Amino acid sequence: MSDLTTNNIMNDFLDDYDVKKISKGEILKGKVIEVNDKEAVVNVNYAFDGLISKQELSLDDKSPSEVLKIDDEIDVYVISPNDGEGYVELSLIKVLAIKEREEIKKAFEEEKNIVVYVKEEIRGGLLAYYGNIRVFIPASLASRNMIDLKTLVNNDLEVKIIELDFRNNKVVASRKIIEVEEYQINKKALWNSLKEGEKRTGVVKKLVKYGAFVDIGGIEGLIHISDLSWNRVNKPEEIVKENDKVEVYIGSIDLSKERLSLILKDVNKEPWTLHENEIKEGNIFDGKVIRLTSFGAFVQIFEGVEGLVHISEITDDNIAKPSDILEVNQNIKVKVLNFNKNDKKLALSIKDVNESNKEYLKYVDEEDGVSLGELFKDFKFE
């Protein structure tokens, strides 16, 4: 019997019993009454039950039992009111595709995010699915950061549709745009939470001649070379290296220009403050020459505390430059001439210490008319 004859018989049957008619493309509600390896049978409240083949259940070639179970209530798409064997030919894929298209279109128009399943890495990016709809994610839009695309495969991913053309089966999405939006929101919140003087944990990202850039959780700040240590630093790598985890203090904050200065040295251990009560005019200290200039020598008397010995205070002898008699890292004694606490300036003298020593030796040597040589003439040094 031909299909045409069969259809005519069915139509006569439906007319005789005044049963509702269904049409191709119609969407019906149904209830699953049977599932096997090849198909699913659905009651659609019609004279005949509906049949969904395995191919119309899933694009992933899943077994019908993986997709549906008995008593599931679903919407189905009518492919044909009569499959030639007494069933209504139905499709789950097509009805889902209609719904999914509507959802994607709405998300695109309202600029809302959707969740897709990343199926595989392909040339130029990632192939993902929103239900049964293919979605392409270009490699450049897969993340705000440089990542290995393989880490996203077989995972759900929240994206935003940026291009939609169903006629040409073109659906393009971006994960990067979401991450950029989140980054901007988090960055703004972080900027607003910053307070000068508070302590933060960060990671050294880059070293430059004048300091180190540190990320404190989405914001990068600069530790100037002078703020790496209380001691003199010639280059940042003497103190830190890239990827070091560091504890820093918030320095100055410029919200309008989004500039942040950080401090690595402990602000609570500022050397000048720690030692200011020990430094008094006339005191003599053991020091170390840390730098020589044409006009004098800088001498450190405590870590982070240094003063200037002017060339005229080095010796009474006539010298052309400090390096004539001094060298860097040389240990010497110095006398405090002047201490300005507010400006943290310290004037020192070497020659005054030597003169004091000469006067003391002369005093001891001449006391009671007995010289040091005479006092120790019979003493043997071993």
Rank of each mutant, 00 (worst) to 15 (best):
K54V: 09
N318A: 13
L68F: 06
G125D: 06
F302P: 01
Y130I: 01
F48V: 09
K341I: 04
I311R: 01
E270H: 05
L372Y: 04
G251K: 01
E237N: 14
V299R: 01
D71C: 05
V309N: 00
D60H: 11
K358A: 15
E85H: 13
I27Y: 04
F376H: 10
K235M: 13
V159W: 00
S252Q: 14
I239L: 06
Y129M: 11
G373D: 11
L262I: 08
N268S: 14
K288N: 11
V364F: 07
Q55D: 15
I133W: 02
K188Q: 14
G304H: 01
L96A: 11
N277L: 11
K21N: 09
Q330Y: 03
D49E: 13
K119L: 12
S256M: 14
E355F: 11
V305Y: 03
V19F: 14
Y210N: 12
K345R: 13
L326G: 02
D378T: 11
E276Q: 13
D215M: 04
S312Y: 04
I279T: 02
D3R: 10
K94W: 04
T6D: 14
E66R: 09
N234W: 07
N192Q: 10
E34V: 00
K38W: 07
G251L: 04
D286E: 15
L141C: 11
S256E: 15
I147Q: 02
E313C: 03
F339V: 09
N132H: 13
G50T: 03
L92Y: 10
V76L: 00
L127Y: 08
E102V: 15
I70W: 02
Y117A: 08
F48C: 09
E278Y: 08
E303T: 06
V336M: 03
L152M: 06
F108D: 02
T151D: 13
V289N: 02
L51A: 03
L157W: 00
K209I: 10
Y46Q: 11
S65A: 14
L141D: 15
D60P: 07
E374N: 14
L346D: 01
V233K: 00
W272H: 01
F166Y: 08
E270Y: 02
E355S: 14
V115L: 07
N154D: 14
K119F: 10
L274F: 05
I216L: 06
Y117D: 09
L149A: 09
S229D: 07
Y77D: 01
V248Y: 01
I70N: 07
R175N: 08
V299A: 06
E102K: 09
T201K: 09
R200Y: 12
I70S: 04
Y117Q: 08
P236Q: 02
K358W: 09
Y77S: 02
G287E: 02
N318L: 13
L255P: 13
T293D: 06
S256D: 15
L59Y: 12
W230Q: 05
S53Y: 09
V267D: 07
E313A: 04
G131E: 04
S143P: 00
D12Q: 12
P322S: 03
D75W: 03
N113C: 10
D18R: 13
R291P: 12
V248G: 02
K335G: 05
A212S: 07
V180M: 12
E238N: 09
A297G: 03
Q55A: 15
D15A: 10
E196Q: 12
